[in-house]
Amino acid sequence: HSHMSHTQVIELERKFSHQKYLSAPERAHLAKNLKLTETQVKIWFQNRRYKTKRKQLSSEL
C-alpha cells in the first residue's frame, strides 16, 4: 500500500469535485501528472465515491 502525498490528494480531490467518474484516458493522464499508477487513481476514486455515498445515506437518516 503506497502513501499519497498531501499534494496528490489535493489534486485528486479537485478533480473529483468536477467529475466523479474518469474515463480511462483521463485516468491515465491524471496518474501521469501526479506520478501515481492508474490503479491508484482508480481505487482512490472508487473509495471516494463510496465515502460520498455513505455520507449522503447517513445524512438522510
Rank of each mutant, 00 (worst) to 15 (best):
S23P: 02
W44Q: 01
H1F: 12
Y50N: 08
Y50G: 10
L22D: 00
H6I: 11
E11G: 04
A31C: 08
T37E: 05
L22T: 01
K15E: 08
T39Q: 13
Q19A: 07
I43L: 13
H6E: 09
E38R: 01
L57F: 10
K32F: 15
H29N: 14
R27Y: 09
Y50W: 12
K20G: 09
H3G: 07
R27D: 03
K55L: 15
P25N: 10
L12C: 06
N47Y: 14
K55Y: 05
W44M: 00
F16G: 01
K51D: 11
K55C: 15
K35W: 05
V9P: 01
L57Y: 06
Q8V: 07
K51Q: 14
A31E: 04
K51P: 05
E38A: 11
K32R: 05
K53S: 10
H29P: 02
K32L: 14
H29K: 12
Q56K: 14
V9H: 06
S23F: 03
V9Y: 08
H29S: 13
Q19L: 10
E13R: 05
L30T: 01
R54Y: 13
Q46N: 07
L22M: 04
R48Y: 03
T7Y: 12
I10L: 10
E38G: 02
L30P: 03
M4L: 07
K35L: 13
I10E: 14
R27W: 06
R48W: 06
H1Y: 11
I10G: 04
V9I: 14
E38L: 07
N33F: 12
Q46V: 14
Q46R: 09
S17C: 15
S23K: 06
Q8H: 03
K53D: 12
F16H: 03
E38V: 09
P25I: 14
T37P: 02
R27P: 01
V9A: 06
N33M: 14
T39I: 10
K32E: 10
H1G: 11
Q19Y: 04
H1R: 06
Q46D: 06
L36G: 00
K35Y: 08
E60R: 03
R49M: 04
E11R: 04
N33T: 14
L57G: 14
K35F: 09
E11A: 12
E38Y: 05
F45C: 05
K32G: 07
E60Y: 07
H6T: 08
A24Y: 13
V9K: 10
R14P: 01
N33W: 13
E11C: 14
S2K: 13
R27F: 07
E38F: 05
S23C: 09
S23D: 03
S58A: 10
E11M: 06
T39H: 12
T52P: 15
E38D: 14
H18G: 05
S5R: 12
H1P: 07
H6R: 11
S5C: 12
W44Y: 05
N33S: 10
L12H: 01
V41N: 00
L61W: 04
Q46S: 08
L57C: 15
K20S: 06
L34Q: 00
S2Y: 13
Q40P: 01
L22C: 13
P25G: 15
I10P: 00
K55F: 08
M4D: 00
Y50D: 12
A28M: 08
K32S: 08
T7G: 08
Y21Q: 06
L34G: 01
L22F: 02
Q19H: 06
K55T: 14
V41K: 01
T39M: 11
K51I: 07
H18A: 11
L34A: 03
T7Q: 12
H3I: 08
L22Q: 00
H18D: 12
S2M: 13
S59W: 08
E13V: 07
L61V: 11
R54H: 14
L36A: 01
